[in-house]
Amino acid sequence: MTKLKAIIVDDEPLALKLLRSKLNKFAELDIIAECKNGREAIQATMDLAPDILFLDIQMPGIDGFGVIKKLQTDVVPMVVFTTAFEQYALDAFDVHAVDYILKPIDEEHIQRAVNRALNRFARGENNDNKTNIIGAIDSINERENASLRFPLSSDHSDDQAGSSGSNVERKVVIKDRDDITLLKQSEIEWVDAAGDYVCLHSEGVTHIKRSTLKSLLEELDPTIFKRVHRSTIVNLNFIQKVIPHTKGEFFLKLGEYDQVKVSRNYRDVIKSFLTDM
């Protein structure tokens, strides 16, 4: 019998207890950890490599969406969100094949979510979890901001970021419906790819941009930005610690909380960086 390793996350103790009692009825699930906030969820996912994450969305600090944004694409397991969102948000989840359980706990949705997870796991369809979730988040944001949107001139925004004057710091343009953010490259700590999107992490905030990792890498300063995984770029200036892992891999600690994995194919990049210091 297939048995999925599960982590459950909720900031409310009673909600966590109720969810555990409901999920314990499924012999196919093995709950390996319980977390009461986003930071614990990130660390537990990195340490325990679960098959599935039952994740509350509305939490103080790092919410459920923030947990997914801060995890590398290759370590994001299947995710079932527990939520009290409006119907339009649930529609976005359905379109992007992201499962959810309605609050107050909905028995029918629990059964559906577990069945879907087991089927996807059996078919090996659990490799694009972050891509699907980022797509759903983007759809939700688009719906929420639709009434505020106005036409953006891509030429105008690109000119701001593309200035090549010696006194102008290089920036990355991020268009978010009615806003344009010019993010300084020197402040970008690391970047993770999720399909047609990239997640840029800077000063505790994750910015989502429509772009491939390859295209973005061409924009970034090659002297400080290096690829350390097929889906990850890091800013060398933010590396605080190198932590050995298994099978020739290791983790990089970036800032106070973020941690990314370096794959064997890219470990020479970091070794060269450490040798040159």
Rank of each mutant, 00 (worst) to 15 (best):
A136N: 11
G162L: 07
V95I: 14
E34Y: 00
I68H: 07
N132L: 08
E125V: 02
V191A: 11
P13I: 08
H109Q: 13
L220Y: 11
Q58F: 03
I208G: 08
Q259P: 01
E203V: 01
G124H: 11
R123N: 14
A92D: 08
K253G: 12
L213P: 10
N132R: 15
D268N: 14
E107M: 05
A161L: 06
V242P: 08
V191D: 03
Q111V: 09
R227E: 05
E40V: 05
A92V: 06
Q259D: 04
I140G: 06
I140S: 08
V191F: 09
S211Q: 14
V242G: 09
V114I: 11
S166W: 13
L213D: 09
E40P: 03
Q160M: 09
S154G: 00
T223I: 04
K214A: 15
N132Q: 13
D158N: 14
N24I: 01
R177I: 07
E203C: 01
F251T: 07
T223S: 15
G135F: 02
V9M: 04
Q160L: 13
K22W: 04
E256M: 06
L118E: 10
E189G: 05
M1Q: 10
D30N: 14
A84L: 03
K130M: 13
I110M: 07
A49S: 15
D268S: 13
R264G: 02
I243G: 03
D47N: 15
E125P: 05
I174L: 06
S21T: 09
E256W: 00
I180H: 08
T2H: 11
I52W: 04
I188Y: 04
P60V: 08
D51W: 04
E40W: 02
L23Q: 12
A49N: 15
I42Q: 09
L29A: 10
V260R: 05
Q240W: 06
A49Q: 14
V76A: 04
N126D: 14
F65D: 02
V98I: 05
I137F: 12
N37E: 11
H201V: 05
D74I: 00
A89W: 04
I134R: 02
Y197S: 05
L102F: 00
A15H: 04
V114K: 04
A89L: 04
V205N: 07
L254A: 11
L19H: 01
R170M: 08
Y100A: 03
S186M: 03
I8Y: 03
D63W: 02
D63N: 15
F251K: 08
N145P: 00
K209P: 02
K130W: 09
Y266F: 14
Y197N: 09
I180V: 15
K184I: 00
D91K: 12
I224N: 10
E34H: 01
I233F: 10
V228A: 07
S272D: 15
Q160P: 00
L254C: 12
E144S: 13
G248A: 05
I101M: 05
T131L: 06
